[in-house]
Each structure stands twice: as C-alpha cells, then as structure tokens.
Simulated scan of single mutants.
Amino acid sequence: MLAAEAGAARNTLLAYRADLEAARKALGGPVSSASVEALKSLGEQWSDLAASTVARRSAALRRFYGFLFDEGFRSDDPSSTLPRPKLSRPLPRILDPDEVERMLEGAAEKAQGERPVALRNLALLELLYGSGLRASELVSLPRRGVRPGSPFLILAGKGGKERLVPVSDRAHAAIAAWDAVHPGGKWLFPGGKAHLSRVRLFQIVRAMAADVGIAPDRVSPHVLRHAFATHLLSGGADLRTLQALLGHSDIATTQIYTHVDASRLVELVNARHPLARRGD
C-alpha cells in the first residue's frame, strides 16, 4: 500500500519495514494479531530509546493497524494504546557563511591540481550548499542530470515528488571540470558498482571540513543543506520559496529556519510596521 498507493520512496519503505520488525521482536510474535495488552507493553520496553525513535515506531504501527482495519484484516484498531512521547523539535545545526566559504575555498584550491577526486569533491560541495540537496538526492544524480547552462535542475525527491532546485554558475563550472575527467557510467558521482553511497558522502564532507580547520563533528551533508536554507532566508528569501526549494510538504518543517533570522525580522518590524512610525 505504501509503495503502490502512497508512492513512498525506497528509504521510507525500508524504514517502515525496520520499525515493524523491531515491533515484532518486542512483541515476540506477529504484529498483525497483537493484542491491546501486548501493545501496552511496548512503552515500557522502549523506555530506554530516544523519544524520536519511539514516536517513529509508534507512527509506523499506527499506519499499519489503520491499514489492517480499513482492509478488514482486523475488526479493531488497537493503535490508541501505543506510546506517544512528547517531542521537541531540535534547532538545526548550521555553519556560518564564512565557514562554508572556507570549505569551498579549500576544495577549490585542491581542485586546481585537476586530480579527479578533488574535482569530484568540489562538485559535490557546490551542489550540497548551492542547491540544498538531500544526501540521497545528490549521490543518485544521473550523469547528465545537470544540463550545462540550465539555472535549474528537475529533481525527484521524497515520495517521487518533482521540484526545481537552483544550480549556480559555480556549481556548473565545478561539474564541467569534474565531467572532463569523469570515469564514465550512469551516475554523476559513481562509486563501486553503483553511485556514491551516502555514508561515503558523509565521510568526504567531514574530511573537507577538517582540511580547513572546522571540527568534523559539526559538519555533515544535512548541515550544509541547513546552511543553504538559513543563508537564503537571511538573504531575503520567503518561507514559501524556501519550502519549494527544499521539497518540504509542510511549511511547518520550513519554519524551523526562522530562528536564525530573528534579528532581521525584528529590524523589519521596527522599520516597516505602521506602529513603529507612530513616534516619528
């Protein structure tokens, strides 16, 4: 159902499968026929897990039992007994613009030697920060996915939903340099028998941070995506535009980035709001 009707991406399907498997182990038997009493025990069994993990597993089970009830496989929906931990959304980790620029300058300096690995790494970094791609979206780009001179890239993101993302002149130049030494194949960033893995991308990004004196544990592909969003917002982008560029289905997800721009918003209210001018 998730694949055929909801159009869930492969990673989403794998996550649901893993959560249902974890529930099966905790229950000691089939999840589909679990009793209300058995489900009540999950809260205690999962008490040592992070609240976000418990919330995700419970959400997967609620979706599963809702499906069973709707399709007539169960006469009841026992999901009301599942744990509902309180969650507080953490603020995204970000880098300052000068820190990102240091990473870009360091990668560009290495790429001047025209070593294939250095040219590839610069192209990866330019797309991560300049386009705000998710790690999985970046590593799975096809060889000709970025068209020379085109200011946008059409991307199939989560759930197969297409969106336009910007491609800067700097990113185009880095991709062209990488393409000149590209080993060939289906993927823009090949690795092993397929494309570069997300784990390998994570390692590459952290190594580039360490090369310019930035603590590696502060940097990841997702942190660079956060930096893309935060710096765009600081530069004047509105939330709806940012939502479209990031591929968020709910603008509430995008609103988390407003915390970094509080000072600019206060200045905007003081300068533009009619009440701010009453004392003039």
Rank of each mutant, 00 (worst) to 15 (best):
A4D: 15
V31N: 00
A180I: 11
V266N: 05
S35V: 09
A123S: 11
S234M: 09
L133D: 03
L239H: 10
L125K: 06
R134V: 09
P166M: 02
R63H: 03
A237N: 13
E105P: 13
M1H: 14
A209M: 15
A60G: 14
T258M: 09
L27G: 11
H182M: 03
L275I: 12
R84D: 05
R240A: 10
E105D: 14
E126D: 12
V199M: 06
R218S: 08
H259G: 06
L82E: 00
K86D: 10
R147F: 04
V269I: 11
A173D: 02
S75V: 12
P190A: 04
D70C: 15
E267H: 05
R147E: 06
R93M: 01
A174L: 00
T81H: 00
K158H: 02
A177D: 09
A176W: 03
R147T: 00
A60Y: 05
A262F: 02
E99D: 06
W178F: 00
V36W: 03
L164W: 01
L128N: 02
E267L: 12
A180E: 08
T258W: 01
L201A: 13
A171E: 07
G29M: 08
F64K: 07
L61D: 05
A51R: 04
V139R: 00
W46H: 07
S131D: 09
R206Q: 11
Q112E: 03
R102S: 06
A156D: 02
A51W: 04
L275T: 09
R62G: 10
D250I: 08
I204G: 13
V205Y: 02
V212P: 07
L246T: 09
L242P: 09
H226V: 14
P92I: 05
V117G: 05
A18I: 06
D217E: 13
A171D: 05
P97M: 00
P85Q: 02
R198D: 08
K193D: 10
V167Q: 02
G159T: 07
R264D: 01
F69R: 12
V146T: 02
P78H: 00
P274D: 01
V266G: 02
R120W: 05
S136D: 10
V100S: 03
M208S: 14
S234E: 14
E21N: 05
L39N: 12
R272C: 13
R93A: 03
I204H: 08
S263Y: 04
L245D: 10
A237H: 08
A229S: 15
Q203E: 13
A174V: 00
